[in-house]
Design a protein around this nucleic acid. Structure first.
Lengths: 210, 210
DNA sequence: CCCTTTACATACCGACAGGTATGTACTAGA
DNA sequence: TCTAGTACATACCTGTCGGTATGTAAAGGG
């Protein structure tokens, strides 16, 4: 029973938890969940194992919290947010959101890939809890897109024969696929090109006013 | 130095190697490369560690061989092969290949995902050798599609303003993205729907004969 | 028939993983 | 001020992993 002095600690649970989530997100984004090392996460967060296991029962709980609280935030900010700023017709709003992402994407972002897609590919077959939460997030994205398309239909700018949910799913799949392929090819050019084709495809859904 | 009797062995190196590759492929398809356990692979192949390390210097070499010799074969058989049977115009050949895959896809295939896509997502950021080989395979796919589109352009059935390579990349990305999303959603329906939308998109590339 | 080479089999190792047991320091409430 | 519970810190444990050292049996050339 050694009674040596201990390291000082923050004793601010919400901050500690947030640090763990952020460090967990970075490590998971770099290495995936399974290969994510708790020791590395703790080193980055400047925390110890005691802190981690005080806030989370196990590694999976940390991972799930990262999905819910960090990854989901990214999606809202990067894809659903820009969708809300709907100046002009709805279809153009989607196209604008895509173009914005194509323009502002960095080499680092492409090489790391979309965190949501990365986790989906890795964890969906392995853990049902991960699969459900990741899918819930992706569904939110699909729902957002479908709602915009539907608005376009009611406004008369989107062709009435298109199925909003089908198209929305296709958009999500194409974007995630583009993230994946661009990551493999290490090519922002490929990413931009793909989003460009997708934008062109969306144009074919517009009622031709000419 | 125990001089106990040993287990009988095949002593047919090419068969042994093939068994290891097949078992390796299955394990990698189920769990990814990093999480693939050599012991599990050896159990499935009914081999021992001695056999494995006689044929491959390390785990990575086995994984790379699986990519080159097994995964690549799948792509050729499932996507590039059907492209060759080109009755009718080239665009229709691509559409037929897509439709064929949509029709024949099984629930198991969807839940496991495309092995090439799975490995691409997992290994591209981690190992440059994997990345190069996986990308070479994906490029072969893109090249095949681009060649067909180009033939269509020369034959006058595909609009002259489309960029074959851009479209080919987009097709590959969309298909892989659809594999990924369908895997996460555990939904063959989603996969089929997405390929349906993609087939519809390809139709917009045709010169309108009407 | 011997002897070298090939083709494995078996036993073992160090590294690192996630997880736990237990101790300590700070804090809020009585 | 005392105390109980919170919020950590530290040491350690066990299992699994990829990898290796060393042994043995079969095949082929001389």
């Amino acid at each position: 029973m050694p009674k040596r002095p201990l390291k000082r600690r923050l004793r601010e649970p919400s901050i500690t938890r947030e640090k763990l989530l952020q460090a967990g997100f970075i490590e998971m984004h770099l290495n995936g969940f399974q290969a994510a090392s708790l020791d590395t996460i703790l080193a980055r967060a400047e925390m110890t194992k005691g802190a981690l296991y005080h806030h989370f029962p196990d590694k999976a709980a940390l991972g799930l919290a990262v999905v819910d609280e960090v990854v989901r935030g990214f999606l809202l900010e990067r894809w659903l947010g820009p969708l809300e700023e709907s100046g002009g017709d709805p279809l153009a709003a989607i196209q604008r959101a895509l173009q914005q992402r194509a323009d502002s994407v960095s080499a680092e972002e492409v090489e790391l890939g979309c965190p949501l897609n990365n986790l989906a590919q890795e964890m969906s077959p392995l853990d049902e809890r991960f699969r459900r939460r990741i899918n819930a997030t992706l569904d939110a994205w699909t729902d957002g897109l479908a709602a915009v398309l539907e608005r376009g239909q009611k406004g008369g700018s989107v062709r009435p024969d298109v199925d909003p949910r089908r198209i929305a799913s296709f958009i999500v799949s194409s974007v995630e696929g583009s993230y994946g392929m661009a990551k493999g090819a290490k090519s922002t050019r490929l990413f931009r090109s793909n989003l460009g084709v997708l934008i062109g495809f969306l144009e074919t859904l517009r009622v031709r006013s000419a």
